[in-house]
Design a protein around this nucleic acid. Structure first.
Lengths: 354, 354
DNA sequence: CTGTTAGCGCTTTCAA
DNA sequence: TTGAAAGCGCTAACAG
C-alpha cells in the first residue's frame, strides 16, 4: 500500500490472543480487563501485565468482531437530508457530540432533501439508506429533517428503535423531538410587548407548516396574556424569503388604516426580516427607533450581519440533536418512552433591533 | 422494545444458514449468489430458489460478520471539523454521494475546528477519532478541512490509506486534494479584464494562507498575460470579514493618487465583497456601472443576496469530496498514487456585479 | 481469580 | 456445480 509509513503497525495482525500470550494469561482475562468488567476480579498484577502487553504490541480491538460476538453495536444510524441542505447542521453536531460522550458512533446516511413526499425518488433513497443501516446492525436510528415538518419515514425503520428529530411522523407513533415553536413565538412577542409595543405586526410563513402555526399561536398567547386584542389586519403571510418579507412589510407599512401602522414587526423567520429591513428603510424609518423588528431562526449569516443586528429567536438544533441521542440511548436500553413528543425551548437572542 | 412494530421481523434472526436451509442448498451457495461471484457458476434454478428464500425470509446480510470473515470493510472514515463549521459542508455531500455510488459507507467522526495546531486539545480529539475509526477497521480515511490550509494530522493516520481534502500536510507526504486557488484568481481577474478594466484593485486575505497566496498569483498571472503592469498601490489585504472588506475598499477608493482609483475590485472572498459593497455605495458609486466587483468562495447566503448579486468564483467543495473518495478507492485497491496533489478547478459564477 | 469452550454470521479454500 | 470445514477476532457462560 503506497500510503503506509509506520511499518510493523497493528493494522492487521495483533489480536487478543497475542496479547494473552504475551502477558501469559487467558484471552478471557484480556477481554475482562479491556472491557473493565466487574464480575470477575483480576489481580492488579495480571491487569498491569495485560495493559502493558496491549501497549507494547500495539493491540487495537476489532470493533466488528466485538459487535458480532456480543450481539450489540456501538453504532447509531443517522439518516438525514441535512448534509444536503445545511441549515440545521447543528443537529448533526449535537448528535455527534452526545454520541461521542456515550462512546457511540454515528453512521451518517445522507439523503437528498425531499418534502417528505412518500412517492418520490427521495423515498427510495431513504429506504435504501435505512436498509443499509440495518445491515450494519446499528442499535438505533435517528431521523432528522432540515425544517420542522411531518415526514413519512420508510416503514422498515420501525424494525428498530428510532427517534425523529426536528420532524414527526403523521401517524404520531414514533418518538420525536421538535422545537417549541409556540413558546418561541410567545417569547418574541413578549419581548416586543415588554418594550412597550402594542401594535405588533406579524409576518408569517406559509400557514400550512408547523412553524407558522406554532409561532402564530405563540403570538396570540402573548397578546392575550398582555390583554391586547389581536388585530387581524396586522397579520400577513408571505413567501419565506427576503423578497417575501419585503413585500409583506410594505403591505403592513402602507396601511394607514384606522389605527395607523404597527410599531413593531415580528417576522417568522430571519430571511423575511432581512426583506422587512429593506422595506422599513425605504419608508425612511429607523430600526429600532421608529419600528422594532424581531426575527426567528437565528440564521447567523443574516441575523448577525444586518444593520442593526437582528434580535431573534433561535432554533435549538444542537440541543435537539443531543436530546435525540439521549432518547435513543434510553430506548435501546429498553426503557419505555416517557414522552412521545419532546419539545425543546427556543431561546431569545437579544441583539439591537428592538 | 417499545418501538418495534413489524413483529416477526428480521432484525436478529434470519441468517444465511436459514436461507440455505430454506432453499435446500449449502451456505456456500448462498454466499456465492449474494456476493455474485463468478468463480463458481450456480444453476439458474438454485440461484432463483436462493433469492426467493432471501425474500420470503426477509434475510438481511450482517455487514459486520462479512467484514470479519473477509478481512475487509466497506467503510471509509471521514474525520473533519466541517460539521462544526459548516462552510464547506458540500465536501461531505460530495464524498457521501460518491461513496454511496461505490456502495461504501462513510463513518463520520467530527472534530472541533482547530487551526491545525499540533499542540491543542483539538489534536487529542482528532487522534481519538482516528483511533476509533481504526478500531472500526475502516478501509481508508478521508481528512477534510473547512478552509484550505496546511494541517498536521495525527500520526496514526498513516497506518492506513488516507487522503486529505481541502488541506495538505506540511511534509507533503499524503495525497491531497485542494482547490486551484491560482486558477480561480486568474479567472476572476480575466473576467474583469475582459470587461475592459485595467485598474483592478485586489483586496486580499491574510497573506499567509494558501488561498491568499494562490489568488494573488492568479491575479498577477492574468495581468501579465493581458500585458498590464501590476500597481502595488492597488493591492491591500484586510481582515477576512465584511468589516475588513469595508475598510480595505475605502482605502482603495480614497486614494486619488496619480492614476486615480480602481475601476474594478477583486475581493478575495465574498464576505469582504459584502463590506466593499457598503464602502462603494457610501462613495455614491454604482455597481457595476461605476465600479465592478468580483468575489471568491460563492457563499450563497451572501453572494446571491447582495444587490446587485455578486459575480464570484466558486470553491469546488462537492467535487473535491467526490474526488477524495475516488482517490481513496484507488488507493485501497492498491493502485499507486499518480498525482500527489490534485487541484480542482474553481469555476466562475456570473451574476450581476461586473 | 483464571482458563476452557462454544459460538456470533459470514467467507473461502479445498474436495467431492 | 455444490458442500464441508476451518477460521475471522471477540464475548460469555461455565468450570476449575
Amino acid at each position: 500500500m503506497a500510503n503506509r509509513t509506520t511499518p510493523a503497525s497493528a493494522q492487521r495482525g495483533v489480536t487478543m490472543a497475542d496479547v494473552a500470550r504475551h502477558a501469559g494469561v487467558s484471552r478471557t482475562a484480556v477481554s475482562f480487563v479491556l472491557s473493565s468488567r466487574e464480575t470477575a476480579s483480576i489481580s492488579e498484577d495480571t491487569k498491569h501485565r495485560i495493559l502493558e502487553a496491549v501497549q507494547t504490541l500495539g493491540y487495537r480491538p476489532n470493533a466488528g468482531a466485538r459487535a458480532l460476538a456480543s450481539q450489540r453495536s456501538d453504532w447509531y444510524g443517522l439518516v438525514t437530508e441535512i448534509v444536503t441542505a445545511p441549515f440545521a447542521v447543528n443537529i448533526i453536531k449535537g448528535a455527534q457530540d452526545q454520541a461521542w460522550l456515550d462512546k457511540r458512533f454515528l453512521l451518517i446516511a445522507s439523503t437528498e432533501q425531499g418534502g417528505g413526499r412518500p412517492d418520490s425518488e427521495h423515498a427510495g433513497m431513504e429506504e435504501a439508506a435505512v436498509e443499509k443501516l440495518l445491515e450494519q446492525r446499528v442499535a438505533g436510528i435517528l431521523y432528522a429533517a432540515t425544517w420542522h415538518r411531518a415526514v413519512s419515514v420508510p416503514e422498515i425503520i420501525r424494525e428498530i428503535p428510532t427517534v425523529l428529530i426536528n420532524c414527526f411522523d403523521a401517524e404520531g407513533t414514533l418518538p420525536s423531538i421538535v422545537p417549541d415553536e409556540r413558546g418561541g413565538g410567545r417569547r418574541a412577542t413578549e419581548r416586543l410587548l415588554a418594550a412597550g409595543h402594542r401594535r405588533i405586526g406579524f409576518i408569517n410563513l406559509d400557514p400550512d407548516i408547523p412553524a407558522a402555526v406554532g409561532r402564530l399561536e405563540g403570538y396570540y398567547d402573548a397578546l392575550a396574556t398582555a390583554g391586547v386584542a389581536p388585530d387581524p389586519g396586522l397579520i400577513v403571510s408571505g413567501h419565506a424569503t427576503a423578497d417575501g418579507g419585503y413585500t409583506a412589510a410594505r403591505e403592513l407599512l402602507d396601511r394607514s388604516g384606522k389605527a395607523g401602522r404597527p410599531t413593531a414587526l415580528f417576522c417568522a423567520n430571519d430571511r423575511m426580516a432581512m426583506g422587512a429591513y429593506d422595506a422599513i428603510k425605504e419608508h425612511g424609518l429607523a430600526i429600532p427607533h421608529d419600528i422594532a423588528v424581531i426575527g426567528f431562526d437565528n440564521q447567523e449569516l443574516i441575523a448577525a450581519y444586518l444593520r442593526p443586528k437582528l434580535t431573534t429567536v433561535a432554533l435549538p438544533f444542537e440541543e435537539m440533536g443531543a436530546l435525540g441521542v439521549q432518547t435513543l440511548a434510553s430506548l435501546t436500553a429498553g426503557q419505555p418512552i416517557t414522552a412521545h413528543q419532546q419539545m425543546v425551548d427556543c431561546p431569545l437572542l437579544e441583539r439591537f433591533s428592538v
